[in-house]
Design a binder for these strands. Structure first.
Lengths: 184, 184
DNA sequence: TGTCGACCATACGCCACCGTATGGAGGCGA
DNA sequence: TCGCCTCCATACGGTGGCGTATGGTCGACA
């Protein structure tokens, strides 16, 4: 008889989220995938909602730091840091694409999720805006440009998830070059 | 006793799609919303899938032309046309946001939907790229810039849907100005 | 005014899933 | 070895939704 920890359930839930979205994340099918019965699930969680919230908490924890961590060490100047950041976040990763999209779509119908997503977005945007200011853009312009880059990112995730071709490395460089322009 | 046409069912389905996504689009609740029973539904449609496909066909029909139609009359030069196009598509419309996102999220798990979305995307992208070429950008650059703008659009839809503040008119102008730059 | 067809209500069987209740297996300390 | 605690299997009732079968209503039209 296999024994699972709570974290293993959450990890399995992320897998299920990837190929089906939050609505397809049901406890009995998930239990079958994990090789146990739902008796295990209801030992670790009060109900289905509790699993969803655990999932959300996990995403928020890694979603905030994952992208930013290590950028400062990987590159020296702010312009190069921005470039590294862009390449890292836009690299092809179907797993991340699916999760990011699933959470964001979920946010449309769940206030708690929307708030968590807003926190993650704010952290990322602040970081990028700070980089742009370091490059020399005035604060309001830096803010607008970071918003622009962030929309490109979200769009890229969703675009790829729907089956579209990924943005190439060369195009990413071009985007960064364009965004750090002080004027139009 | 109320009587509905097939189109009224589709229209109702769009409403339901807006506040819940494709998974929440179920025939019995929808029938209740429309003030009839599912007896009516199964008179007009073979099954739930048929409604989904009708929905998809409706979206593809309007999604391709809706944005483009009338732009040629509303502005003279290609640069101004692009500006008009950007303002039109990015204007705040929670209804469109929801549908666009729902379809795109749906495309991640349904091949038929993914193909329809790809057709719509290709049409829109071709149009924007053509505008950029008319402005004077070389074809490959025009293609890359249109991809960029399109990602911003998708990102904007999803961003707003998740509760974020909309891009202002001034920012939209700035984006267009940046994208029609011949070089970085 | 009778008939026909379009449209819908109702009732039914079926299935997937939720959450609960209960007991059983197995490790672990006293 | 005994009892306990953690983790899970099993069985159950309940709910919501799918699709079908069947009959009823109402307007159009001859």
């Amino acid at each position: 008889m296999r024994k699972l920890s709570r974290d293993e359930w959450v990890a399995g839930a992320f897998e299920a989220l990837v190929d089906g979205g939050i609505d397809a994340l049901r406890v009995e099918p998930l239990a079958k995938r994990l090789g146990v019965t739902k008796g295990s699930f209801y030992h670790h969680f009060d109900n289905r909602r509790a699993l969803h919230l655990a999932l959300l908490a996990g995403w928020e924890a890694i979603g905030t730091s994952q992208i930013i961590d290590g950028v400062g060490e990987a590159a020296v100047g702010p312009a190069e840091q921005l470039r590294v950041l862009a390449h890292r976040t836009m690299q092809v990763d179907p797993y991340s694409d699916a999760i990011e999209n699933a959470i964001r779509a979920w946010a449309a119908t769940d206030e708690v999720v929307a708030e968590a997503a807003a926190r993650v977005d704010a952290t990322r945007l602040d970081y990028v805006a700070g980089l742009l200011r370091s490059i020399g853009l005035p604060a309001p312009l830096a803010r607008r440009r970071s918003n622009m880059l962030y929309r490109i990112l979200i769009g890229e995730f969703m675009w790829r998830r729907a089956g579209g071709p990924a943005t190439t490395k060369r195009e990413i460089d071009e985007i960064v070059d364009l965004l750090i322009q002080p004027t139009t």
